[in-house]
Each structure stands twice: as C-alpha cells, then as structure tokens.
Design a protein around this nucleic acid. Sequence first.
DNA 1: TATTGTTATACTCTATAACTATA
DNA 2: TATAGTTATAGAGTATAACAATA
Lengths: 180, 180
Amino acid sequence: MAKPPLPSEKPLAKPAPQPKSGARRAAATKALPPSAPSVDKVDTSYLQTLMGYNARRAALSIIELFLERLAPYGLKPVDFSVMSTIQHNPGVTSRQLCMTLNLLPPNLVGLIQSLEARGLIERKPHPHDGRAVGLHATPKGQALMVQAEFTATELELEKTAKLSAAQRKTLLALLQKIYL
Amino acid sequence: MAKPPLPSEKPLAKPAPQPKSGARRAAATKALPPSAPSVDKVDTSYLQTLMGYNARRAALSIIELFLERLAPYGLKPVDFSVMSTIQHNPGVTSRQLCMTLNLLPPNLVGLIQSLEARGLIERKPHPHDGRAVGLHATPKGQALMVQAEFTATELELEKTAKLSAAQRKTLLALLQKIYL
DNA sequence: TATTGTTATACTCTATAACTATA
DNA sequence: TATAGTTATAGAGTATAACAATA
C-alpha cells in the first residue's frame, strides 16, 4: 500500500536521442538564450513502451471513427455492445450484461430504457427469477444490429488496414490475454 | 454520409453455439415457460472480433491497476503522460503536448497549473516565441517521475504477465500501427 | 440475509465557443 | 490573419449510497 520499492535500477526507457538542445534555425539569427531549450520533435519513446498507453490510444483512434460511422444508427460504443450482446443472447439480464461488459448497474438503467423506448428491445419476465428481467431484441432491433455490426466490422477493417489478416488475429488474441 | 451499404453478406460473427435455450435446472422442477429463454453463459464471440472493443477492454484493465498504484504519486494516467513527456522533452510547449498526446488545449490548462502548484514543473519563457511557454520538470518533479515510471513499468509487466517478452513487443508494435 | 433492478446524485472527463497577446 | 494559451461552460461518462421487490 504505502510506498513503492525504491528503484534500484533505471526505468527501461533509454534516455532517448534528445534533439540537439538549444536553438535550431534561431542559431542563425541571434545568440542562444541562457537556459530555455525548445523542442523540435517530441520524443515519446518511453510512453510507447507502455501497453496501457498504446492500447488506449489505439482504442480511442478506432472509437473516433466508430462514433462517426455508427451515428446514423443512433448507437454509441456502449449502446452497440449492449445491443449486440442482447442480440446474440436472447433473454440475457441486466446483471449479466454488467458482468460481461464491465458496466455498473445504475449506468445501464437509462441505456436499457432508451433502447426500449426506441423499440429496439423488449423486456420479458425471467422464466425462474421474479427479480430479474430478460432482454430481447425486437425484429426492428435485430434488423438494425445486422446492419450496425456490418458497418462496425467494415470500419474496423479500415482502421486496421496496415495489419495483415494474421497480424489482426494475433493482436485480438494478445489483447484478450490481458483483460480476460 | 447518409446510409451505409446494405449488407449483402452476413456479418462475420458466426451465430455462435447458443446455450441450450429454455430452462436448465428448472426443467427438473416445473414445466417450461412459454417463450422466455434464460441465458447460462453469455456469448461475446462477435464483440471479441472487434479491435476497438478488445483494445478498450485491455486498456481499461491496465488503467484500473495504474490508478491504484500511481495514486501515491498523485498522478492519474493523463498527468503521468504529461509529466513523462515534459521530463523527456525539457522546454516542450502546451501545444506540442496537445498534439503529441491528443489532448485539447482547454483541458491541459488546469492540469499544468496543478503540476506547477505542486512544484513538479516550471514554466519558462520560450526562447523565440513570445506566445509560447516552455515546460520543464523541476528536480522534485524529475525525482518523482523516475519512481513513477519505474512503478508504471512494473505494473504493466504484471498486467501482461500472460505474455512472453516477444509477444509483448509484438503487441506494442501492432497497436502502434493502428493509431500512429 | 443476499441479490436484481432502480433512483438520486456527485464527480470526472471531454468538447465547444470565445477571448488575449503575440506572431 | 493566424497561432499559443486561457476562460467559461456544457455535455457525456463514471462512480457511490440507498431503496424496493424478490430469492
């Protein structure tokens, strides 16, 4: 809890080739200022060794396009995940969605209500638990999701265009080894 | 913009082996209810084909531990990224930080002020642009970041313990092909 | 007593518009 | 006119505590 172990070794990142400090073109115009170097090209070599940083940047990059392409369906990433899970798991409960997608129950309530108000899902009593409610995609919701999933898959292939099919498969598997 | 192409093919996800619908243990107790199946194990095979979903889940998983371990330093992920970038790029400007870390200028202002108030960074006039301000880590900030980066690297290795060194390297490189 | 779903609410994060001072 | 930094603010996302109904 308290203090982390004092680093007896240096962090992994190499000091990184610092762009020749001081003035660049300014050297041609006037004398160097005393002690305030400027930066030509920002070095991010340390951050790039962090999985959290890279995963987050990659995710945000994809989500940016996702928001744009899925807007016509009225679906944001979480809406999409929830609808897709209901689509493929008829009768799934709110609690199961929360566990599966790592959501908090209070944050799911409004989302479910909204999807129901749009006629995309229906709530049916759970077969053998009076507290729970089974969620089902309506025909309208099903039709929407078939198209939405197609669009999502398409956009993903675009965003990962620099990757071969094998690399893409590898990447998915490795990411799952982290969070599953 | 308007409508996406109608899917002439099915989305990639296979229908996925549906857990035998209907009642499970309930079958032993009473007759099956008319038409409200319940779900035993939630199937997420489609979502798992999406890079955005997997990258986000992996990132959040790492960030969760990051928040815990870096709390003693008073650094959240963005604070850490900013401090680390300043540390490795003395004299970097706010605008350069925004471009590099994909932040919006208004959201960086309070963050910088906070770091300065804590005595972790200093603001010096930019050598040849009166509008800009160069950011520099103080000795205190430098000492903090050496330890913070060590802790971050350590925690990352823990979270990616299921990966070999080669897999880890591969994963970093593939993620960078997406967002860089 | 424990769990499902819900309400209310607070806190954080992210985004937009508009201003200033310098270039 | 364009850019760096700032202010104010709105909106979305995420979090905790507490409650009713059911197990």
